[in-house]
């Protein structure tokens, strides 16, 4: 199983599109850096290095990273199904369940790497341009520095689980729609619809997975344990529900290509 996951990770890092996403990440970081510098100077903002990772995360959490997840899943699943290479491991001693699980595991690892790079970029660029700062102030709320670090790690950590659950939903689409362009189109549609309905129908928000990509606002401003628990339940329901449905469909599916 570990070797299977490693295979999938190796495949991901042999594809150009992954590096395009890392490049986009870097460019966006520079823009955010410039934006934050301008805010600090002319709008009397007081953003320091310790808050920069979360500012940066705000810029990529809703669209760039989910799109990265969509691209990863279509390339590991839909593209491989279409070009026939998906069956290669199945002709060895790999069950369909193991195959799906290892693909999702590999995507988890790659998204984790992506988030780590983001975190390092955030602290690195933030500290070298704005200094560490004496307080963690974000969205007009201030925390002790160590609380700020915890919040940052917490937000990044929860997001990894949310992205994986979102990924399970995309996996489900990939299993029922064979064509990878359609999977990208439908997933992007769902992503934007649900991002928009986050704002339009606030009542629906707690049940949408997109609501949990960036949990800083959700939990930092008024932390309630009940809210966190409810959030985790929603995230895990998405993940498990879509995974189990996908695997049961995939197990019965005739692989014709």
């Amino acid at each position: 199983m570990t070797r299977l996951i490693m295979n999938e990770v190796i495949k991901i890092f042999h594809q150009k599109k992954v590096y395009i996403f890392f490049a986009i990440l870097f460019i966006i970081s520079l823009f955010n850096l410039a934006g934050t510098a301008i805010t600090n100077r002319y709008l009397s903002g007081n953003n320091y290095g310790q808050t920069f990772p979360l500012i940066l995360f705000d810029g990529v959490s809703n669209i760039i990273i989910p799109m990265f997840v969509i691209v990863l899943i279509t390339s590991l699943f839909s593209d491989e199904y279409a070009d026939g290479s998906l069956k290669l491991p199945l002709l060895r001693k790999v069950s369909r369940n193991q195959l799906l699980l290892s693909k999702m595991g590999a995507i988890g690892i790659v998204v984790l790497i992506f988030l780590l790079v983001l975190l390092i970029l955030g602290y690195g660029l933030g500290i070298s341009f704005f200094g560490w700062g004496d307080q963690f102030v974000l969205k007009s709320k201030s925390f002790e520095p160590y609380e700020g670090v915890m919040l940052t790690l917490f937000t990044y950590g929860i997001s990894l689980i949310s992205y994986l659950s979102f990924g399970m939903m995309i996996l489900f689409l990939a299993v029922i729609i064979n064509n990878s362009a359609s999977v990208v189109a439908v997933s992007t549609g769902i992503l934007f619809t649900s991002l928009v309905s986050d704002y339009i129908i606030p009542k629906a928000a707690p049940y949408l997975i997109t609501n949990y990509f960036n949990t800083y606002r959700l939990f930092a401003l008024d932390f309630e344990f009940k809210k966190l628990l409810a959030g985790l339940i929603v995230i895990l329901t998405y993940g498990l529900g879509f995974y189990l449905t996908s695997i049961s469909i995939f197990n019965r599916k005739d692989i014709l290509i």
Binding site: K11, H14, Q15, E80, D83, G84, S85, K87, L88
Partner: peptide
């Protein structure tokens, strides 16, 4: 082998 052998074309 099933039909034309398929591999990852980018490797």
């Amino acid at each position: 082998i099933v039909e034309i052998p398929k591999f990852h074309s980018y490797l």
